[in-house]
Amino acid sequence: MFEAKLAQSSLLKKVLDALREIVEDANLDCSSDGIKCQAMDSSHVALVSFDLSSDGFEPYRCDRNITLGLKLATMTRVLKCAGNDDSITLRSQDNTDTLTVLFESPNQDKTSQFEVKLMDIDTEHLGIPESEYSAVVQLPSGEFQRICRDLSQFGDSLVIACTKDGVEFSGSGEIGSAKISLRQHSMVDKEDEQVTVELNQPVTLTFSTRYLVSFSKATPLSSSVTLSLKAETPLVVEYRISDVGHLRYYLAPKIGDDEETEHIDDCS
């Protein structure tokens, strides 16, 4: 038996919306620690993962590990039926192929219940090694979204360069080029609005703008976003979800046109 209640149904909606930017279906792996998910886009360039700790749910019960295979479009439909302040309960009995979704209004006078059919989704899981990043940039999530959107008008690639002074985003294309620089600054009273760069080593990487724009759709989840960069390593874009966990995107960098350095992995 699996049961998890979240006081804010809107939080789950935001998480699933962020997932939907990358994939159509996803497996939610539920264990006694909480709900985890990892999903990769069809071209294997981007990955989204989230980790919602059991502490964020009240109550949370998971007798044995189960995997909930969800069609995200279906879940979105169901979640649209929730009121803004409704709580949400996810429930799945052992040996059934459905998930029960229950919404309750704050004063408990309205409840709505939905049964969602689960799917068997064949997914590939990637092991993501812990890594020491050369630069970790924190900035307001709204600012990040704005930058991605603005630069998407100037070409398919976005270059992120981190130096000790700050971080610079640039793009260039047929119509011209654009450069947006953010300086490091901290405001004591408004922690969410500060820009910080923790730098071990200056680093410059190129990414596909299209994916970054998709990632920034997760902005409602958190007021700030963290970018972790390291040469020849996928970018990590992390949105912290207060008290519950985090949602991360990984994006493979664009690599120079050097055939020899390309690595062919064998997919067994």
Binding site: H44, P253, I264
Partner: peptide
């Protein structure tokens, strides 16, 4: 530049 794949 060419886009890399995550699984590499």
């Amino acid at each position: 530049a060419t886009q890399g794949r995550l699984d590499s």
